[in-house]
Each structure stands twice: as structure tokens, then as C-alpha cells.
Design a protein around this nucleic acid. Structure first.
Lengths: 133, 133, 133, 133
DNA sequence: GTGGTCTAGACCACA
DNA sequence: GTGGTCTAGACCACC
């Protein structure tokens, strides 16, 4: 799991960690059952505080992406195709999609180009098994 | 320009204003050249602080969406089709798109459904001229 | 909001706070729209750390019980009767109910007595408007 | 005694064991006088540490649910109808019931539905003799 | 004023 | 070894 965080970013560190792990799960680089680094290991790797990593894992746990137990640490709990998305998730996701797409449209990106880029991103996420050794 | 802000939302009010205006521009309800309400008028309309509205306009100005001058106030500067999006915009927009799509994929939304929803949102933005009075 | 925490309890302080607020909401002592103490105010009142209170509020926010914004702090967002309970909530609630009831049965509390006590507790929660000034 | 533990659960394994045994006692699948598996046997069956099972038995012993002696191992000491519940038990049980019910009420579960679900659970526990081979 | 984030370091529970 | 909790105190964003 080679992820990077930018301590100077306006995005909180704990959320950067959360985002990178979500992306790894979506792309299949992390598959259900895979072990995550321990909070302490990640903290020293990034030179940040344990509590910050713990907060990131906390968020992932509440989203149902990972499961944690005290003995074995955290493992990935869901991935592409492991059950349908909940209505509650979609309800909070759609407005964010709308705003993000509006930004691109307002900046002059043609709808066709937006769709094309969306497809490109999704293609990186597809076929999770193929990207694993 | 009938926009709404939710004072109870976790999203900062200034950003809600920014988002709603961007969406209005994307959908064509606001077109390049259109006049925006004055900072003062908006603040009164929403019962919020003038500085909050000013901060929203500031953000829009930095993004190149509006242009302000002392005499005539703020006008919309960009819109769908008003020149190509800048590379700088795309550079900071793509990672955000990636993260947002990754969330949906990780939660089990199939790529086909994501594309479909993207199209639906973009369709609301299309035909800007038709949606104008 | 007169609540107490026991720093010596095995129950984490942040969860005690969460529990007491949930109980206040269920009983109607806190109704939707009511303002909660600020995290700092609660922290000094209890002689505990701000982060601990913040964690309690965080949990309540994720459960949809409160809403927080930066200007006005936290307010109660739901209460008895404000929308049906989600299936996800019930799924994680039922096993906890089963275990708790099993304890009582195993200790010799007759089912009739358990039902009676359940009713008594629920009666304290009913008629939220009546218990308000 | 066919009980299951989920090593990935956030609930500590020793407590899962304790909970399942309590539920077995409440439902009559284990009756006063019944012999429990030895600590060693259970540990092997679950592939877990002996100390973990011992901790579960410890908890049950402190609650008065089982009794252990050197020669004959552990036997069930209490069950439905085996004498009245102690006041001490009720004192620590009621607040937990209150919190659990408050959660459901605050989430919008109507009192009637809560009572109904409580009855359903208790019915599974009733008629202990009938459920024995 | 409000909440959010982060650090450094401590102690405890689980297995 | 793992994660969870908590403290004391700092800085930042919002309004």
C-alpha cells in the first residue's frame, strides 16, 4: 500500500488517507480480506500522529469499507461488486456529483469530454482481479 | 437568481453560495454577461453576513467564473462553451473526480449506473439557451 | 442539559455523553431544533478534554441525531417520531437487544417482569411535548 | 453446544462467547446442571487462545451463571426460573436497557414496535424444557 | 464565539 | 503485537 499524504494540503490528512484507501479499494489494489497497515505503522511511515490515522480508519469503518478487530487489525470488508450501494449513500453522493460536474461545465469542459474522462477513471477501477498479482 | 442556503448544513455557507452559483452557470440559468446580485443584496436576502457572501464571490472570482468591477458590480464571466477549460483547472479537478467515483465504486455502485447518473446530471446542464426566459 | 459522567466507569467517557444525550432526546428533554452545549462548555463543565466531547458529538452526528455547523454549534436533528428508523439501524440494534434480554432471563427475571420494565422505560420516553415547559 | 464466533467482529471474542452462552442459557438450550465444554476443548474448536475462553468463563462465573470446580469442570448454575434476579443485577441492567431503548426511540422506532420486538425475542427464550432433546 | 484538526505522549484492553 | 481512549495544548476555518 504505497500512498502519499500532503501535510500542506487544505484537505485534512486523515481524509487524504481515507481517500487513498477508498481509491485503492475501488481499483482492486486492495481487495476484500486484505490486511491494512496498522495505525502505528502508517503513522510512523507518514510522520504523523497515530490518532490521525485512527481517525481515517474510523471513517472507513463507518462507511463499511473496512472491519477492525483488536487482534488482527483492520481488513478490507467490501469492494467493487460486494453488494449494492445503499440508498443513503446515493442520497449524499448525488449532490456532490452534481456540484463537481457543474464546476467542469462552468469552466467550459464539454459534456462529451466529461463523460470520456469519467469512463477513463472508471476503466482504471474495472477488472479488479486483473490488476492483482 | 433564486438560490437557497441551509444554515444548518455542515457545508460552509459561503461554499453553498459558490456551489449554487456554479450550478446556475452550468445549467445556463446564469449566462456570461449576466449581472449578479450585489453582495449586500444577497446578504440581506439570506439574512447572513456580508463578509460571507463576499467570500463566496471571492472564490468565484479566483476561479474565473465571475468578474467584478467597482461600478457595475459582478457579472458572469464564463459559462458552458465559453472557451476551453484551463489545464490548471483540469489538474485539480481530475483527482477530485477520481475520489468521488472511487467512493461510489467502493460502495458497490456499478460503473454503468455511475455513467448513467453522470449523463442525467449533464443533461440538466445542456441546452443553456433553451432554459432561459 | 444536566448530565453526569463517571470517569472511572468502564464505559468510555465519550460514549457516556453520547448515551445521556440520546436518552435526553428520546425522553423529549431535548427536542429537534434545541441547541446543545458547545464542546468547550461541556468539556470544562465535566473537567474533561475538548476532543473527548467532540468525539461524542461526532458519533451523534453520524447517527443523525444532531447537526453541527460552525457558526451556531450543534442542534438536535431528530427525535421520537421524526421519520422511521432505518433498516440498517434495526439490523445492528436487534442482536444487542437479544443479548441484553438474554442476560435478564438467564438471571431469573421473568418475561412478564421484563416486559413491564420495558414499558416503564418507554413510558418515560412518551409524550415528549408534555415534559417540556 | 454449537456456538459461533466471528473473529472479524469488533466485539471481543471472549465477550462473544459469553454472550452466546448466556443466550443458550436463556433459551434453555443449556439448563442448570448442564456440563459446559472444557476451556481447552472450546479453544481448540474455535482455533483461539485458551486464555480467551478462560476469560469468558471467568465473566460468566462472576455473573453467577456458571460454577466451576477443579474436578468436574464448569456447569450451568442459573437459568430461567432458578430463583429471583438479584437487586445488584437489576441495578446495573436497567440503565443499559434504558440506553438501548432510548437509541431505538431516538431513531424513530415507535414504542409499540419496540414492545413487539421485545416480545418476539422473549418468546424465543420461553418454554425452555420444550426446546430440549 | 463556534467546531475541526493535529501533535506528543500516556494508559488500557484484547489476544 | 493490535486498536481504543484520553489529556493538554496548539492552530485554523467559519461567521
Amino acid at each position: 500500500m504505497q500512498i502519499e499524504v500532503d501535510p500542506l494540503s487544505a484537505v485534512p490528512i486523515y481524509q487524504q488517507i481515507r481517500d487513498r484507501i477508498i481509491e485503492a479499494v475501488a481499483s482492486g489494489r486492495l481487495a476484500p480480506g486484505d490486511q491494512l497497515s496498522s495505525v502505528r505503522a502508517l503513522a510512523v511511515a507518514f510522520g504523523i500522529n497515530v490518532a490521525t490515522v485512527a481517525k481515517a480508519y474510523d471513517a472507513l469503518r463507518q462507511e463499511g469499507v473496512i472491519r477492525t478487530n483488536q487482534k488482527s487489525g483492520s481488513v478490507v470488508a467490501r469492494g467493487p461488486g460486494s453488494g449494492p450501494a445503499s440508498a443513503a449513500f446515493i442520497d449524499q453522493w448525488m449532490p456532490r456529483l452534481t456540484t463537481l460536474l457543474a464546476e467542469a461545465v462552468a469552466q467550459g469542459l464539454p459534456p462529451g469530454a466529461i463523460i470520456a474522462r469519467t469512463r477513463t477513471v472508471l476503466d482504471q477501477f474495472a477488472d479488479p482481479k486483473d490488476s492483482r498479482p
